[in-house]
Each structure stands twice: as C-alpha cells, then as structure tokens.
C-alpha cells in the first residue's frame, strides 16, 4: 500500500511527456519540421542553385491550379495519371491477394513453399522489378509479346509506349510485385477468424460461398481498413514503376504525380513548385483517406 502511494505521489505533470519523448523527438525531427519547412519552401520561388529565393506567397499554388500554365497543365496530367493508376490497380491489389490468402490458408503439402513463392517478388527492389519488366514488356523486342505471338495472340501490344496497354502493364507488374504483402496481412486476418464460427455456419447448413460471405468477409473487416487504406496510398504514390518501365511514355501520360514532383524538385531544382505540388497531392490523399475511413465506419455502424 505504502509503496503504491509513494508511486502515485511521485507522479509529475511531465511524466507522460517523458515517456512520449523518444517518439516525439523522432516525430518532430522527421515529420513536423520537414512538413513545416516544406510549406515554407512552397511559398517561395525556391531554386536550389540560387542564393536569392524570393517569397512569392501563394503564387506557386495559383500557378498549379491554373491549368493553362505550363506547370499547372503538367501537374494535372500527372494527377490524372495517378488517379487512373490508383483506380485501375486498387481492385486487383485488393482482390488478387485475398484469393491468394484464401488459397494459402488451406491445408496442403508444400504450403510454406507456396507462401514464400507468392511473397518472393515483394522483397525485390523497384529498380530490379522495373528494369526486368521494361525489357520483358517492350512492345517491339520484349519477351511478353514474343510469347503472345507464339500462342497466336496479338504480338504488337505496346505495353510501355501506348495507353491503355501501358496502364495494364504497370498494374500487372505492381500486382505481381506487391500482392505478397497484402496476402500476408489477409492471411493473418484469416487465421484470426475462430474456427468455431465456420463450424457453427456449417451446422446451420451454410455452403462454401455463404461461409465466405457471412463469416470470412465480416471477419476480415478489421484488417480490411488497413489494407484498403495502405494500398490506396501506395498506389497513389506510385513512382518507380512508371519511372523505369514507361519513363512516362507516351508523352507524359503515365508520368505520375510523385514522378513529376521528383523531376521538378530533384532534376530541375524547382523546389518551390515541387513542394506546392506535394502539398496539393497530400491534401488530395488526406481527403480520399478520410472518405475510406468514413465508409468503413458507416458499414460498421450499419452491420
């Protein structure tokens, strides 16, 4: 008793902050300061090479919002590219890993081996994946078209230089590359669903589809929010694939927002415009993310 009281008495107002401080320090150093610094940069005509970095207020933003200006036009084309890629890739990145996870959740010989096989591409770096698929997908000298031709299918699809084929190329590569990650999360979710629920459903006469629909899907809801949101953000941040595989072709149609931001800031050194682009993209993603949270909350309330 006495020891407990002593402990309570030694509580100070700063105790919680002391416990928080290691993370708070990292959060401040790597989140708060860079964000504030970026915001400050975005209000300037900030070229790394110049000593003079004049303050321009919201000029960078108004220029980007004006679709008729050079950077504004390029930015919205890139935002559209980001949107197209996200919309096309999201369904596949949500459904294909789920199917893989269901498959891997079964009991069969060599299960661990197959789990490793599906996860394997994920450990490759984007540089490896990009270079590999750039050669495989090349419309004129690539192996994909070569084998399509050997099978009697059209062999002149321009996977890297023509839309919409380039989008499907990028989506396919991304699904192949990253499905292992979502599959592992789904698998963990599946293993958390108590076996009794399946047994009870069976006893009640539910078939495989009904068990999937009424036991598996609701059981996966806790991980689904995470999977949807993280996949959405990852797709919207797509850069390496289009940078390496299509290099933005045809004529910048597959140049995503992050690609353009990196190019503007790190190749053209126009940090002001690049920062303003980043904030507009971040704002868009925050709104989209909020909508996703909202949808999941509503569903939980109605269920």
């Amino acid at each position: 008793m006495r020891a407990a009281r002593l402990a309570t008495r030694s509580y100070r107002w700063w105790t919680p902050y002391a416990f928080l401080s290691p993370y708070l320090l990292l959060f401040t150093a790597f989140m708060v300061i860079p964000i504030g610094w970026g915001l400050w940069i975005s209000l300037h005509d900030w070229d790394i090479n110049f000593a003079v970095k004049p303050f321009v207020g919201l000029d960078n933003y108004t220029e980007l919002l004006d679709g008729g200006s050079v950077d504004g036009g390029r930015f919205w084309i890139a935002m559209k590219a980001t949107g197209v890629f996200t919309a096309l890739s999201l369904p596949f990145l949500l459904v294909v890993p789920l199917l893989v996870a269901l498959l891997m959740n079964g009991k069969f010989r060599g299960r661990n081996f197959y789990r490793a096989v599906y996860f394997a591409p994920y450990v490759l770096g984007v540089a490896v994946v990009g270079l590999l698929w750039r050669f495989l997908l090349d419309g004129n000298i690539g192996m994909v078209n070569h084998y399509l031709g050997a099978l009697g299918l059209p062999d002149d699809v321009q996977w890297t230089t023509g839309t919409p084929a380039a989008w499907w190329g990028l989506v396919g590569v991304t699904v192949w590359w990253t499905l292992g990650f979502n599959a592992v999360i789904y698998l963990a979710g599946l293993q958390d669903i108590p076996a009794e629920l399946y047994e009870a459903a069976k006893v009640d006469g539910a078939g495989p589809w009904q068990r999937f629909r009424h036991v598996t899907v609701p059981g996966l809801r806790p991980v689904a929010l995470f999977v949807v949101n993280s996949t959405l953000l990852a797709s919207a941040n797509m850069f390496g694939q289009s940078y390496l595989i299509t290099t933005g072709a045809p004529a910048d149609e597959t140049k995503t927002a992050i690609f353009l931001i990196a190019e503007t800031g790190l190749r053209r050194f126009d940090m002001g415009t690049a920062s303003a682009m980043s904030f507009l993209l971040a704002l868009t993603l925050m709104v989209t993310s909020a909508v996703v949270f909202r949808v999941f909350r509503d569903r939980q309330e109605t269920s």
Partner: peptide
C-alpha cells in the same frame, strides 16, 4: 521503323542484330 519504339529499344535491337 516499327511503331512506338520504347526507350532504348532501338539501341538494344541494334546490338542484337535487328
């Protein structure tokens, strides 16, 4: 030339005798 030659494809094809 074929249609829509991708980045470096013309050079890789040259190296490969095409």
């Amino acid at each position: 030339s074929p249609d829509q030659v991708a980045q470096d494809a013309q050079y890789n094809a040259f190296k490969n005798n095409k």
